[in-house]
Design a protein around this nucleic acid. Sequence first.
DNA 1: TTCCGACAGTGGGGTCGCAAT
DNA 2: ATTGCGACCCCACTATCGGAA
Length: 507
Amino acid sequence: MLIDLARTSTAVTAGSARLAKIAHLAELLGRVEPDEAEIAIAYLSGELPQRNVGVGWKSLQDPPEPRLAATATLREVHDRLDRVKALTGPGSQGARKTLLAELFGSLTRQEQLFLTRLLQGELRQGALEGVMIEAVAKAAGVPAAEVRRALMLRGWLPAVGAAALSGGIEALRAFHLEVGRPVSPMLAQSAVSIEAAFGKLGGPAAVEWKLDGVRIQAHRAGDRVSVFTRTLDDITAQVPELVEAVGALPSSDLVLDGEVLAMRADGRPEPFQVTSGRVSSRTDVQRAREKVPLSVFFFDALRADGADLLDLPGEARHAALARAVPPELMTPRLVTSDVADGEAFFKDAVRSGHEGVVVKSLLTPYAAGRRGAGWIKVKPRHTLDLVVLAVEWGSGRREGLLSNLHLGARDPETGGFVMLGKTFKGLTDELLAWQTERLLAIAEGPTDGWTVTVRPELVVEIAFDGVQRSSRYPGGVALRFARVIRYRSDKTADQADTVEMVRSLML
DNA sequence: TTCCGACAGTGGGGTCGCAAT
DNA sequence: ATTGCGACCCCACTATCGGAA
């Protein structure tokens, strides 16, 4: 029953101890029907078996009156969401609304709350996939490492969890790398400098250009090529150049990891916005391709030479990649133990218009789906001193605190300020409390109950990765990945950086 | 007893496709 | 033609728990 999940979710939300959350989840998994295990695992880790159903915050605004008695089964809810997802074409939004109202009208208040959070992608129970892995292991009586390994190869915990619950450790060991089915890609940790990155790894390392495009995983089985994104979406039809490039390789049994991006004729990369737009284009790929051709650069191989390579050291995987792929399709790379060489390579990458580098251990295996310690990204960091123009009330654990800052640069021509974006990042609890008090003291002007306008007096030092063209902000520019470094109590607003300075960074 | 790896949470800008206006 | 919504591309950072050292 859905109510069982809602109750478990409430119990999981109630405390902060992870072991207690695991115990609650495992208890539920211990009594779920086998044919509903997949749904239960998905829901309680914040996922939908359908991945998405076209329902977001707006569609969930005013739910109908709840029922008093809980009657909905997991299967019923799942089937109704299938029907919601299937609705398309003219009039579908009205029909969708009706179906959703029917569904929510059949639920109790507790069930409504659970389903709303689930559909919004904000379960906020302090437990998602990472905790659910442990719960599955506990409920199935198998080591968590076995669940993780199967998940790495299958990429979808509900399927892995259901198998573990019904078939135990043997069922888990039956999962293997399947060409044509994506593996969660390995992610990188970050460091502030090449020196710090080398320090974390120790010994010689590979330094690779970090290209600012879209992460892809390319599979080839015989003549069949498939391409997947970081979240395992199939984008094969959107990247024909990549399909052709992989199809032309001598080997017909491959799983490759790389980055796709749009390059300019002069050999420099297009801004991320251009690559992103091209990769997202689905309606007229041929035309999009003519306007913005894509290039691909590989940096790892998960399968080649007729063998799975995940467990091999990075260096061995790279050697296999180099045997399978011509050099022009590989990410520029330098192996060194000399920090100065690494720094020079990093500078060269940035000078060539790229994001930075990833410093990689030569030893570690491919940590699929994890932020492995073996890969460390390093990017240059820009900073500006900007003025707080307004601030938004936070939600969740930031409820009651002023959180999201509206940032402005000085405009000497008008004597005013030009908004460049917002940020909520980099704030400690202490700083959140401080800025709430400080900003309320200088609140002035319109407020909509969500955004508090303040007198432009407070200067804050902001780090960011770069500037990008913006149609949202009046200055035509916005900051990318802005975060707070510190408040500049030593500076007044008329000493803040100007919008011209920001624009000059766009070149 | 202290340290640190892994997670979850809190949101940021931009783009596309689709349905409604 | 424009607007709003949902989905997904890129993502940084802090707090916390609990196992490792």
